[in-house]
Amino acid sequence: MILSSHAYLPTARKASVHFVAENWAAMGHRIHFATVGYSWLSAFKRSHRFHALRKQQNNRFTRYRENLHAGCYLPLIHGFSSSNALLRELGHQLMRRYGRHLPGFVVERIREADLVVIESGTPLAFVELVRRVNPSARMLYFCRDLLSSVGASDVLRNIERRHVGTFDAICVPSRRLGTLLPPGGKVVYVPQGVDGTAFDAADVSPYPAGSRNAVVAGDMLFDQSVILALSQAATEVTFHLFGVRWNGAAPGNVRLHGEQGFEVLAPYIRHADFGIAPYCYSDGNAYLAESSLKLLQYSYCGLPIIQPDTIATSRGNEVYYRASGESDWRGVVERALAVRHPFGGSEEIPSWRTVAERTLVSVFP
């Protein structure tokens, strides 16, 4: 049983929890994937995804492949985190109440589960409820991010501190992230993986012949000012943004593709001239150098990567810009375009099957 803030939908972007769930199902395990953190309030902020979830998974499980069913808990309102001072306390109160109840279709699967996976974020609100429903199940904290980095509420941070030592294992994609968690937990490092088969099969370019193209996959800690500066400095390059919400009018050479399934995204990454990881940096999110999925996907495809000098990696395909104030954006683009990047994959990056196996071993040694 997986409790996740991510939606399992054919049109939704894939996070690591999706790849792990699919590989567990392929290994023969029966998987139920429940999305939490949505309600009818989501119709105003995440309308497209809300309506897709309501149509396909409204308080029920739907079969998507052998051994894998996905459903969404959709109450009238849900607990949320907010940086708005006026909404923050309301969000705290709602989060406390939200975590006291799950619908029957989820509770039934928790009762019969051998393993309950709690992903970092809103799913933490249900830790105590899960323990009461099935005290014999093993529990895995699938921690992908530092809660402070993603703006999680104080309620969720307090739950993490109180329960970090009660999980059978805490699986992290970055050693640095593991050191930043509250003390007392059984932390196991399992690096992120790459779905090489999707990239290997994406042999037809979606780009016009002779064109120059850059890609951004995902909006985590997205710094719009970086893309704006790059697009203005290199008007001959088209910048393709996936899963990114843009504020205001986008420049003519910026294409907003919205949220797409991974099979749609894969050829755009493989055939791009370079990838971009425009992270807003703070001291707490340096762990992204190890855990960033987009950095691994770009690297698998051999792309040069434009990234801030505060997120330091050592794969040899980095093209850094000064996060404290870059003065030569044209030069940054020219350095990226000058890098040769034959496609061939990387043997150093594990497959998701390997990641799924190692994740399971962390809680069932």
Rank of each mutant, 00 (worst) to 15 (best):
221 L>F: 14
222 F>E: 00
114 D>E: 14
174 S>F: 07
125 A>K: 09
216 V>C: 09
191 P>I: 06
237 V>M: 12
210 G>C: 05
157 R>V: 13
220 M>W: 15
134 N>I: 10
107 V>R: 09
179 T>Q: 12
132 R>P: 04
156 L>Q: 08
109 R>C: 00
169 A>D: 11
225 S>Y: 03
231 S>K: 11
159 I>A: 02
123 P>L: 05
193 G>P: 12
228 L>Q: 13
124 L>Q: 14
148 S>P: 03
106 V>H: 06
187 V>Q: 05
199 F>S: 04
176 R>M: 10
119 E>Y: 07
127 V>W: 13
210 G>P: 08
229 A>C: 00
234 A>I: 11
231 S>V: 07
152 A>L: 09
167 F>H: 13
180 L>Q: 13
208 P>N: 11
130 V>Q: 03
181 L>Y: 02
197 T>E: 15
227 I>M: 05
123 P>R: 03
168 D>H: 15
213 N>T: 12
230 L>A: 05
208 P>G: 07
144 R>V: 14
179 T>L: 12
222 F>R: 07
103 P>H: 13
207 Y>P: 03
188 V>N: 02
131 R>F: 12
203 D>V: 14
191 P>A: 10
105 F>C: 02
180 L>R: 10
204 V>M: 05
154 D>I: 12
107 V>D: 09
196 G>R: 08
228 L>S: 11
179 T>G: 03
181 L>I: 01
132 R>V: 08
199 F>C: 09
120 S>K: 01
106 V>C: 15
147 L>D: 12
184 G>V: 05
128 E>Y: 06
233 A>C: 12
173 P>W: 04
136 S>H: 10
112 E>T: 14
236 E>P: 02
102 L>W: 10
232 Q>V: 09
147 L>V: 00
167 F>Q: 11
105 F>M: 12
105 F>V: 07
115 L>S: 11
184 G>T: 01
147 L>Q: 00
132 R>G: 09
129 L>V: 04
216 V>S: 07
147 L>R: 04
124 L>M: 14
148 S>M: 08
